[in-house]
Computed example of a mutant assay.
Amino acid sequence: MAGITSADVARESGVSRTTVSYVLTGRDGVNISEETRRRVRETATRLGYAPSAAARALRTGRSDLVLCILPDWPVGPVIETLLDELADELSGRGLSVLVHHGRGARPLSDLWRAVTPRAVIGFAPFAEDDLLAMRQAGIQVLGTLGEDRQPDPDLPSESQLRIGALQAECLTVRATRLGYAWPADARLAVFARDRLRGVQRICAELDRPEPVVLPVGLDVESAAEAVRAWRGLGITGIAAYNDDVALAVLAGMRAEGLSCPDDCAVVGVDDVPAARLAAPALTTVSQSIEVQARYLAALVLADLDGAAEKPGHPGHGLHLVERDSA
């Protein structure tokens, strides 16, 4: 039923709107019997009443929403796991996570003014005017590393560089020349760029040739075409942007009648569930997403509690998961 208000709940329950508000917001120190509380909750459930987050924020002076702003990224298992773990961590303090994907031309200010978040987590740098407006409105703004200032998007990410380095360090044990499987989705270029730089850094340190970079789509035909090209250049080790791309490379190798790792070794990134089920099981770099989610939650809670010190960064938790593909 649309348009249900607290007045409807009050009328059906035989109590005042004030009593409904006290019961549904969990207010302590108010003399309301358990029978009345039960009746109000049951009536609200039966009518389908949900308190307005904006109205609650106006009454209490604070919101229970933590708004996560995602850029226009494809959402895969890693982001899903991060957001799920973050929601679990914050729910213990009565906070809810709302996710917004930055697609379309609607101004960000329209969003945070509509939902009145208590805190905003940016997964990429905000425009300076958005950042200033949120802070002036008293909204706590965090980056995923707890930055006090906006990170420079042109500077390489140390964690992404390390991912590529771990891939290259594994592959160069046996491969003299590497290939890099670049994602076909252009939205992933910012991550792929720095991971590739990490591979290039290790190749340079070992005086190996530059990795041969080829785009690989998530289909057998695209992957097989890249595999043929790498094979013709003597490539015997491939660092893939992530596990999805690595699994495509494995499919392309099978289509070309090649064996992994005998003909060519492959290393992915993310350690998705399918990685251990692949044939051969995929060697990959894990990002320890659960650790990052707990750190993000701790940052939010420390800032909301006005803690003098922020929690220490746990490190990126990157490590190589060795399986049969390399």
Rank of each mutant, 00 (worst) to 15 (best):
275 A>D: 05
312 G>V: 12
297 A>M: 08
306 G>D: 02
313 H>M: 08
293 A>C: 10
299 L>K: 03
311 P>H: 03
305 D>L: 10
294 R>M: 07
313 H>V: 05
282 L>P: 04
277 L>K: 09
307 A>H: 08
299 L>N: 04
306 G>C: 08
286 S>M: 05
282 L>T: 01
297 A>I: 03
311 P>N: 02
279 A>M: 11
307 A>N: 00
279 A>C: 11
285 V>S: 03
293 A>W: 02
286 S>G: 13
301 L>M: 06
304 L>H: 07
276 R>M: 15
291 V>Y: 09
294 R>E: 07
292 Q>Y: 15
279 A>E: 12
294 R>P: 04
304 L>G: 02
308 A>C: 00
303 D>T: 02
311 P>F: 00
305 D>V: 04
313 H>A: 09
305 D>S: 14
309 E>G: 05
294 R>L: 10
283 T>L: 01
295 Y>Q: 10
286 S>H: 14
300 V>A: 02
296 L>I: 11
292 Q>S: 14
310 K>Y: 00
306 G>I: 05
279 A>I: 12
297 A>Q: 06
275 A>W: 01
290 E>M: 11
303 D>K: 10
299 L>C: 07
310 K>I: 00
288 S>Y: 05
275 A>F: 05
284 T>N: 07
283 T>E: 05
307 A>I: 00
277 L>E: 14
298 A>W: 05
276 R>P: 09
306 G>Y: 06
283 T>M: 01
308 A>G: 00
311 P>I: 04
298 A>F: 11
310 K>N: 00
312 G>D: 11
279 A>P: 00
300 V>E: 00
291 V>I: 15
292 Q>T: 10
306 G>T: 00
280 P>G: 04
303 D>V: 01
308 A>V: 10
298 A>Q: 12
311 P>Y: 03
280 P>N: 04
285 V>G: 04
277 L>N: 12
299 L>A: 03
291 V>W: 13
309 E>F: 11
278 A>S: 14
280 P>K: 03
285 V>C: 09
293 A>V: 07
286 S>A: 15
281 A>Y: 08
275 A>G: 13
309 E>V: 11
294 R>A: 13
294 R>Q: 13
287 Q>Y: 09
287 Q>R: 15
289 I>E: 01
300 V>W: 03
306 G>H: 07
302 A>L: 01
289 I>Y: 02
289 I>D: 01
307 A>S: 10
275 A>M: 09
276 R>N: 12
290 E>D: 15
298 A>N: 10
284 T>V: 13
292 Q>K: 15
281 A>D: 10
288 S>K: 03
278 A>V: 05
286 S>V: 09
278 A>D: 09
297 A>S: 13
277 L>F: 14
312 G>P: 06
307 A>M: 01
279 A>L: 12
275 A>H: 04
290 E>T: 14
298 A>C: 08
276 R>K: 14
277 L>M: 14
298 A>Y: 07
282 L>C: 08
309 E>M: 10
305 D>Q: 13
290 E>F: 09
291 V>Q: 15
302 A>P: 00
304 L>W: 05
309 E>I: 09
292 Q>G: 08
313 H>P: 06
287 Q>L: 15
310 K>T: 00
277 L>T: 13
291 V>R: 15
305 D>R: 14
288 S>A: 15
